[in-house]
């Protein structure tokens, strides 16, 4: 009967010899330590350590190689980006700005200049609108520095025929409407001085101009009791406002605690308006009275 290899190996197993435990240690010593002149030991003395970071470099190379290999595989799956994407990226791209102190200063001055220009424009706009209002209010007040050629009144009067009473009445008053008088009329009063304060005058009407002042200005001008108010009109004319009138004018600027005009102020202004109406009625339309005449004036005002 022939024996199989398996049978043979099973029979050999009976003849197995156990290796002693210290056999490998003895072999090591015999090979590497007992004999210092051995070839292996000589080679060990010539051992050279590798440079620093070599291991990391090698690993990087290996990793790069590995990445390249992996990415090279990805090129098979490459996709082209949309055409518009590149253009949008280009548009969004901005150069980096390095902010220095100089940049901040320059911007500050630009902003400050813009604000100042804006304020100047607003001031000019206000000034123009105020001047326009004043021009409208004094629309036909005679303007300064314009000469007027005198009328040859004598010749006119001489050639006038003998007038009947009706004709006299018709010619007696010639009313020049505001739009008709544009020439300079000497000693027009554009403003007066009360103390050091300059007060604008509208239509040569002092009373109207004083009652039209702002509340703060009016109170400061007419507030002081027992102190006469002197109105300097021009080099020839300084009017001394009586205490009674000064009190009336100060009443025009009385206010409540909330700053609104008091009822007394409204009454005072209405009273002054009534006086003006009475004066106009007495002298403007009168054919026989003149405010220049002392008797006419006294009999009218009393």
């Amino acid at each position: 009967m022939s024996k199989t290899p398996t049978d043979i190996f099973k029979q050999l197993q009976q003849y197995e010899v156990t290796v002693p435990a210290n056999l490998w240690e003895q072999l090591r010593i015999a090979l590497f330590e007992q004999d210092e002149q051995s070839s292996l030991h000589k080679l060990q003395m010539l051992e050279v350590p590798p440079p620093d970071h070599l291991f990391e470099q090698v690993m990087e190379e290996v990793e790069d190689l590995r990445l390249k290999e992996e990415t090279s595989k990805l090129t098979q799956f490459e996709l082209a980006p949309p055409v518009l994407l590149y253009d949008r990226l280009k548009q969004k791209q901005q150069p980096a700005t390095v902010w220095t102190l100089f940049n901040y200063k320059r911007r500050f001055f630009y902003y400050a200049a813009a604000i100042l220009l804006f304020m100047l424009a607003v001031a000019i706009a206000f000034r123009i609108s105020f001047t326009k209002e004043k021009t409208d209010a004094t629309a036909d007040a005679p303007k300064q520095n314009q000469s007027v050629s005198p009328v040859s009144d004598t010749a006119t009067v001489v050639t006038t025929p003998v007038q009947t009473k009706t004709a006299v009445a018709a010619n007696k008053r010639t009313v020049y409407l505001n739009s008709g008088i544009k020439e300079k009329f000497y000693m027009d009063v554009p403003s007066v001085f009360i103390g050091r304060r300059r007060v604008p005058v509208y239509n040569n009407d002092l009373l109207f101009s004083f009652t039209s002042m702002s509340f703060s200005e009016g109170r400061s001008v007419f507030k002081e009791k027992n102190k006469p108010v002197i109105v300097k009109v021009d080099d020839y004319t300084n009017i001394r406002v009586s205490d009674f009138m000064s009190k009336q004018l100060s009443d025009v600027f009385r206010t409540k605690r909330n700053g609104k005009p008091a009822h007394a102020a409204k009454r005072a202004k209405a009273r002054i308006n009534n006086w003006q109406k009475a004066d106009r009625k007495a002298f403007d339309k009168s054919k026989t009275k003149s405010p220049h005449d002392i008797i006419d004036l006294t009999e009218t005002i009393f």
Binding site: A139, D140, R173, T174, V175, Y176, L177, N178, I181, F185, D188, V189, N203, N204, D205, L206, R280, D284
Partner: peptide, 8 residues
């Protein structure tokens, strides 16, 4: 001289 309408 006073007033908007000068009276002559």
């Amino acid at each position: 001289e006073t007033g908007k309408d000068r009276i002559v």
